[in-house]
């Protein structure tokens, strides 16, 4: 829910190109901060966590069009920099199965990373305050999902004028289209208003279904973390902070 399930060719070129650019820059910055030795050691773990996320994403909860991401767990187990790489890898593989387009991989990486990285920081922060796994895990997951879903709606809203074009494109004006940036005089007044109204509906549907999803994923993440904490507490690395 929190990442964009849009196919290729729907978002404007400038938007997804920007997504790739920001992903590359953020990725490069994060890897500068990561120890090379640590990276080598954690690559197989990253692969396993990414695979678990791919499997989680393949379990679709049909009535609310939702699937679990397991991104917050990944953030807690891998740490922020490796979570970013895991998000990228997961999105590439999901895109290969039509789960979001190939051109939106950059944007999806950013949105999923928001979930994983903020989930990690919320979890650590709330743990310092409460020191109780169940409420901390639930609230951290809920807030991280909420944040990334709002970011997703924000990203989709950036392309409103482009969707307008897609809706009102007339046949017979050529076969190809290449617009890196939108011209300002393409649409005016009424059509823009109707586009805003539609975005409101999209946001409404996304948030109402998403809300159920956040609760569901919050509960699942909490239960999974409780299971891991019972069997392998060292993996969550809370002992030294408790």
């Amino acid at each position: 829910m929190s990442h964009i399930h849009l196919p290729d060719g729907i978002l404007p070129i400038w938007l997804w190109a920007m997504g790739y650019l920001i992903t590359m820059v953020s990725g490069a910055l994060l890897f500068r901060l990561t120890h090379k030795e640590d990276l080598t050691k954690k690559l197989p773990l990253l692969g396993m966590m990414a695979a678990a996320m791919v499997l989680g994403a393949s379990v679709e909860i049909v009535p609310i069009a939702y699937h679990v991401n397991l991104m917050v767990i990944s953030g807690i187990l891998l740490g922020p920099s490796l979570t970013f790489l895991a998000a990228f890898v997961v999105n590439v593989i999901l895109a290969l199965f039509g789960h979001g387009g190939i051109t939106v991989i950059g944007l999806n990486t950013l949105l999923l990373s928001i979930e994983g990285i903020f989930g990690y920081f919320f979890f650590r922060l709330f743990w310092k305050v409460w020191k109780r796994l169940i409420p901390v895990a639930f609230i951290a997951t809920f807030l991280a999902l909420c944040l990334s879903t709002f970011s997703m709606i924000g990203v989709v809203s950036l392309g409103v004028s482009h969707y307008e074009d897609l809706m009102h494109q007339d046949e017979g004006h050529g076969v190809f289209e290449f617009k890196l940036f939108k011209k300002h005089d393409d649409h005016h007044g009424q059509s823009k208003e109707s586009a805003e109204a539609n975005l409101g509906r999209f946001a409404g549907v996304t948030l109402s279904l998403g809300f159920l999803g956040w609760i569901l994923e919050g509960i699942m993440t909490t239960l999974i973390l409780r299971y891991i904490y019972r069997l392998r507490p060292a993996l969550i690395k809370l002992e030294q902070e408790a």
């Binding site: 678990a52 699942m220 909490t222 999974i224 069997l231």
Partner: peptide, 9 residues
């Protein structure tokens, strides 16, 4: 959730 936890471990 236990199944996913088991899968992760």
């Amino acid at each position: 959730s236990n199944a996913f936890g088991h899968l992760i471990i």
